[in-house]
Design a protein around this nucleic acid. Structure first.
Lengths: 201, 201
DNA sequence: AAAATAACTTGACGGTGTCAAAATTGCGCA
DNA sequence: TGCGCAATTTTGACACCGTCAAGTTATTTT
């Protein structure tokens, strides 16, 4: 028997994949996504440069995995926010606000979820695509619910409404995070205006 | 007199700055912004690796300059589109459509104008910031015009309306270009819906 | 013509992603 | 228990990248 029951054995780390994901989020939290390199990541975990490639075919695949996790925690955050509503009236507002709060709270994750680092250059993982698509489908369902509850006009195609309103929120998030045209001070006003637009669609 | 009046002399290229910008747009057009490296750029122009650094302090500065040009041609495109309107009713729609057409026609330029390659990592050039701000101010003026023409509710703060509607268009552009949630087929419907939202704000 | 300045080049440094081949180890099966 | 196989990890290498420092050459100014 070797000392396998010690904390770690040199070879066969045993939990490399999730360790990598954890270290990657740490690294990104510390210095943005630019501060994440495969080499530094491997170093941090205490493994050789190319070891991560056995668990992620690519750097893009690693980023995709992080984005995937992001979608999951996004979904949770939004659903919790909606569940906390005391009246139907606030549903739309709560959705919008939780969306932007998520983007603000985890800007780097949000970048990964919707940025080009994954969707363009890396051609997204199949898993990521289904995860992202699932989030959107869920939103479309909410939209139809809201239509039935009379919160939204039933005249508009739910899909189209979902696409445009998501665009508004995504645009707000992007401009806010990138520091273009929008500053945090007016954000509440902007969310209110956006929601009013949605209502009157 | 040396042979300075020849097409080129080896040293003192004479027009390096604009040659670099041209070659950079070419390079980006060929393979996206990732295909642009300072070294390839210098190669393309026929100059040594570090020569560009005499005209742009940084790679970010180069990209900022390209983004600047982008803002100028954007402004021109939009103003032309608005000038072509035959009735006031179509102004909003024409704006929205020309915005998205620009984004589609020059996706890489659009990325530079609003992407993180310039606004986040590179901290934007002062010139770029003023150029971008100018574009937005112009839009806010349009909004107040439209309010006076009765196209838009006078209840909403023009700045806020400008911010939210720009967000909607930016979000649509981003999702479209990145291939998320939106496909080209429905774009016209989405623009129409967005404009209707704007009108009923 | 001489001095100053601007433009450009060469060489180098430290960093990146990732491939190929070799080394190491744990696990299932005999 | 021992052995072979497959999974895992490492080492070495390659081709890039951005950009700094110092040197070279042309142009402009005096």
């Amino acid at each position: 028997m070797t000392s396998t029951n010690q904390v770690k054995s040199a070879y066969h780390h045993g939990d490399l994949r999730s360790s990598l994901l954890q270290a990657a989020t740490d690294l990104i939290a510390e210095g943005g996504v630019d501060a994440l390199s495969m080499r530094k990541l491997a170093d941090r975990v205490g493994v050789s440069r190319t070891a991560p490639y056995h668990h992620f075919t690519d750097k893009h695949a690693l980023l995709s995995a992080l984005a995937e996790e992001g979608f999951k925690s996004y979904e949770k955050a939004v659903e919790e926010a909606l569940a906390g509503a005391t009246s139907e009236d606030e549903l739309l507002f709560r959705f919008a606000r939780s969306y932007l709060e998520f983007a603000q709270a985890y800007p780097e994750t949000y970048n990964l979820m919707f940025g080009q680092s994954v969707w363009k250059a890396g051609i997204p993982t199949e898993q990521l695509k289904t995860e992202a698509y699932h989030c959107f489908r869920r939103y479309v369902e909410h939209v139809t619910d809201w239509q039935q509850q009379g919160l939204l006009s039933e005249q508009v195609e739910p899909l189209h409404f979902a696409q445009v309103s998501w665009s508004t929120l995504h645009g707000l998030a992007r401009l806010l995070l990138d520091g273009i045209y929008i500053d945090l001070k007016h954000l509440d006003d902007l969310i209110n205006l956006a929601v009013r637009m949605f209502r009157n669609a």
